[in-house]
Write a protein that binds this DNA or RNA. Structure first.
Lengths: 146, 146
DNA sequence: CCATTTCATGCAATATAGTTGCACAGGTTT
DNA sequence: AAACCTGTGCAACTATATTGCATGAAATGG
């Protein structure tokens, strides 16, 4: 997703110490082209060197709280995580394939959302607008045709 | 939500037999002004007469499969359920309060989404576009000010 | 009118995802 | 040195959802 991102700098900007584990989590999230579930991230990290499942959850929560990482809801059970919008990453919608469960990033331009009306009239605080497109990805369509 | 909806007719249109339990689940979902979690629905039904938790899950899955009910992702753990868009119900976005966890329906007009570009260029099948606004509802803001 | 099948439901067990409480090691502050 | 923070690990736990199997009632077929 962001091979030119400096993860140390991202953590510093969020006023978080750059521990090994935090960097490792952030690298997995950031280097992947599509959002990953906490379980995926844990299993990936575990392969290279030992880390506790709970630590991964805690680091993810921390990163989400500090706006480094974004929690993205899937059409399924587990949430996914991707880099939060920043200078190099514009907010963008995601696509969820209900067949294979894979999430993918869509182009920021693919959908045009005008929330002006809502911002003006909504009587609460709005933090973000999440857009998810559900359907079946081209791979799954191809596979079901055979 | 839809006191003028005929739930028997909705089930019939979806080619589903109108069993007592299905009607009860659909009534709870349909008569409520905001989406409910499977657990909420179960607890509500249980109060009036006995039903199994698993039955509620199964009926909800069935209704979602047949397009009578819509599964709506929250910012939290459990999914919520509301009536699927139909003649009386236009698709609309939802608001999730990250403080109290309450989901609410927003006006269909509050957000304007132009997905024309995506429909034309996306190489898979698109079933629906789900929009969720996250933030803090006015009640929670008021409570935290005291 | 009995035998067979089908369907909706219930119950127990299990799976998955996430959370909590407590301990401890290493560094920092007093 | 004592008190303290912080990051991490481990075990137990909670909440949510799913699976497998049993049963009873209605529909179907001889």
């Amino acid at each position: 997703m962001c091979h030119q991102c400096d993860y140390n700098a991202l953590l510093a900007a969020a006023q978080l110490e750059a521990t090994d584990n935090r960097l490792r989590v952030l690298e997995v999230v950031g280097n992947n082209g599509f959002p990953l579930s906490a379980g995926d991230i844990f299993r990936t990290l575990e392969r290279s060197s030992s880390i506790n499942r709970v630590t991964v959850y805690r680091i993810l929560d921390l990163l989400v709280d500090h706006g480094v990482v974004e929690r993205i809801s899937t059409g399924g059970r587990a949430a996914c995580f991707g880099l939060a919008p920043n200078d190099h990453h514009r907010p963008h919608p995601h696509f969820y394939c209900k067949r294979c469960g894979q999430m993918n990033c869509l182009n920021p331009e693919s959908l045009n959302i005008d929330a002006g009306n809502l911002w003006k009239t909504f009587p609460g605080q709005i933090d973000r607008v999440e857009v998810r497109v559900d359907g079946i990805c081209k791979n799954c369509i191809r596979n079901s045709e055979t």
